[in-house]
Design a protein around this nucleic acid. Structure first.
Length: 264
DNA sequence: ATGCATGTTACATG
DNA sequence: ACATGTAACATGCA
């Protein structure tokens, strides 16, 4: 489920482990999540090390450790982070587990679309500083938005919103929510929108991102009950505004949920 | 059994 | 070169 706010939530689950020495490393290096690293090397670097702090950006997480080590984690479609009690048994899809005094810092991912990376650097790795502004950043303002929004101006808005180089952190449900809240159909490209609609789209991007962070990032509580969010998961549910059944359609390779009567 | 899933990317096509 | 579309990845669930 991880998009912007869920990623922030999962990332913070490792916070109790900050500053704790890593006593033991368990990883299954065969798993797909380790395709970008040399597992034995990473394991070696993690042992006796400690997490100092963590950062998130869109759907990415970055953990700073001692000895110039930075651990990058992307949760993919089904990844999550958690801490298991010290005496707990590890589970089937716990692909990376770091034992500390407070328990096991675990990366769990059934489908293994997630990815573990590692970097060596004295300071924040270069690539991290070059990432685009997140929609929750105050630097992500209308001027910034207007500038990149014209690129690929014929692609459906649904695809544009899911483009991580422009809207880092926005995924399938957030894109549907933004379009529903701005009352614009997902198929339409930015090029055909009126200025008023462009502004509305921008406002919805900011609102959905901010409210999602406020609700989900700290304790994984639900988004507002008025949101499309609660109706978009199974076929046959109704639009919260019109009460009419929602449309489901594949756009840009993803199942898209939208309301014909509500969105224009 | 069949189809689908909150993501990314390598490859193919235009 | 670029823009867009599709298949593939691995597993669980309805």
């Amino acid at each position: 489920m991880p998009e912007l706010a869920e990623v922030a939530f999962y990332c913070s689950r490792w916070n109790p482990g900050w500053g704790e020495r890593i006593l033991q490393v368990r990883m299954n290096g065969q798993k797909r999540c380790f395709r970008s690293v040399v597992p034995s090397r990473l394991s070696e670097r993690l042992l006796e090390n400690r997490v100092i702090r963590s950062l998130t950006h869109g759907k990415r997480m970055l953990f700073e450790l001692d000895r110039r080590l930075w651990l990058g984690i992307h949760l993919g479609m089904t990844g999550s982070l958690l801490i298991r009690p010290p005496e707990a048994e590890l589970e089937k899809h716990d692909h990376l587990a770091l034992e500390t005094r407070v328990g096991w810092l675990v990366f769990n991912d059934p489908r293994q679309f997630g990815r573990i990376e590692s970097f060596e650097s004295d300071t924040l790795p270069e690539f991290w500083r070059e990432l685009p502004f997140e929609p929750i950043s105050e630097k992500f303002d209308f001027h910034y938005f207007r500038k990149f929004v014209d690129r690929g101006s014929n692609q459906p808005l649904k695809s544009m919103l899911m483009d991580q180089s422009r809207f880092p952190g926005i995924g399938n449900w957030m894109a549907d929510e933004v379009l529903w809240q701005s009352r614009i159909r997902p198929h339409r490209p930015i090029a055909v929108l009126g200025e008023k609609e462009v502004k509305e789209l921008f406002r919805a991007v900011k609102r959905v991102s901010q409210v999602a962070m406020a609700r989900i990032a700290s304790d994984f509580s639900d988004p507002p009950k008025t949101w499309l969010f609660h109706r978009r998961w199974k076929a046959g549910d109704n639009c919260p505004k019109t009460g009419v059944p929602l449309n489901r359609e594949n756009i840009g390779g993803r199942t898209t949920c939208w309301s014909e009567a509500w969105q224009r």
